[in-house]
């Protein structure tokens, strides 16, 4: 289910006011099963772009094709993509509303018109997937810890079995352990369920390790787009966008600058360690 955006443009307050567009003429193609890291400074237009991809706001011009269909065409029923493209908003736990965790996760599938058996099955699977224990199922979602709430909210989207999962800063406000939990969960979804993932963050370190393609947004446009190693070669450009390299890449670059002939395309800590060991041996 590839997603293609065609000269997608959107500005808040309508086109008349011709302020700088929040999303400005973006044309990209996203293939099945990709893990995309969408990076950009606060206010660069990431959230707006995601909402356009999920068909939640209408573009001023340009459009989005999902499965080859123009989702903003007049006769297109936007409700039909709800089960295909799932979006986890920033602080998704603020959207919990049901009396019990289980009921809340059932909300999405029920809206898709599934029967109650299928709905409950999906809710159960989704909650298991995010690692929520059975005894929590019938508690009020408002009594859970922050990390648990967040995982329940993510389960609420997963239960709709989307093939594309969009996450807007899913680790915001979590402690390092919670961050890792969420990121590992997302990676697992991409690998084992072959879901297309679009993960938004303003921190390179979050996505560098997981993404196989990185898009960098700046002023409503995609400024850089490519494999992580390739994107990180544009150090000055990234810095001019207010972004920094992942700490690992940064460390290797500094080593290289100081005369140690390491390659600088390592992204995970393991790779970096190997590279340094290789040079020093």
């Amino acid at each position: 289910m590839p997603i293609i955006t065609d000269h997608l443009t959107y500005s808040y307050g309508g086109k008349k006011k011709s302020q700088t567009a929040a999303v400005n003429d973006i044309s990209v193609k996203i293939d099945d099963g990709q893990f995309i890291g969408l990076i950009g400074h606060t206010g660069s237009g990431k959230t707006t772009f995601l909402q356009l991809l999920a068909g939640l706001v209408k573009p001023d011009s340009g459009t989005v094709y999902i499965d080859g269909e123009d989702i903003f065409a007049k006769d297109f029923n936007l409700h039909s993509i709800r089960g295909k493209v799932g979006i986890v908003f920033q602080y998704p736990e603020h959207q919990l509303f049901e009396e019990t965790v289980f009921k809340d996760v059932c909300y999405g599938p029920k809206n898709l018109g599934l029967d109650s058996k299928e709905t409950e099955l999906r809710a159960y699977e989704a909650l298991k997937l995010v690692g929520i224990e059975d005894e929590v199922f019938y508690q009020s979602p408002f009594d859970l810890s922050g990390g648990q709430k967040r995982r329940v909210a993510i389960a609420g989207v997963l239960s709709m079995k989307p093939r594309v999962l969009i996450l807007d800063e899913p680790t915001a406000g979590l402690d390092p352990a919670g961050r890792k939990e969420i990121l590992d969960l997302i990676e697992n979804l991409c690998k084992s369920q072959n879901m297309t993932i679009i993960l938004v963050s303003h921190s390179m370190d979050d996505v560098a390790e997981y993404a196989d393609r990185i898009m960098v947004m700046n002023n409503g446009q995609i400024a850089l787009d490519g494999a992580p190693g390739e994107v990180f070669r544009h150090r000055e450009e990234l810095e001019s966008f207010g972004l920094s390299l992942p700490q690992v890449t940064d460390a290797l670059m500094k080593l290289k600058d100081s005369g140690i002939p390491v390659r600088t395309d390592a992204i995970t800590i393991d790779e970096a360690v190997k590279e340094i060991v290789r040079v020093l041996m």
Binding site: A54, R82, G83, Q95, Y107, K110, N111, V157, M160
Partner: peptide, 8 residues
């Protein structure tokens, strides 16, 4: 927007 995405 969030609930719309969940099919509301």
């Amino acid at each position: 927007k969030a609930q719309t995405a969940r099919g509301a």
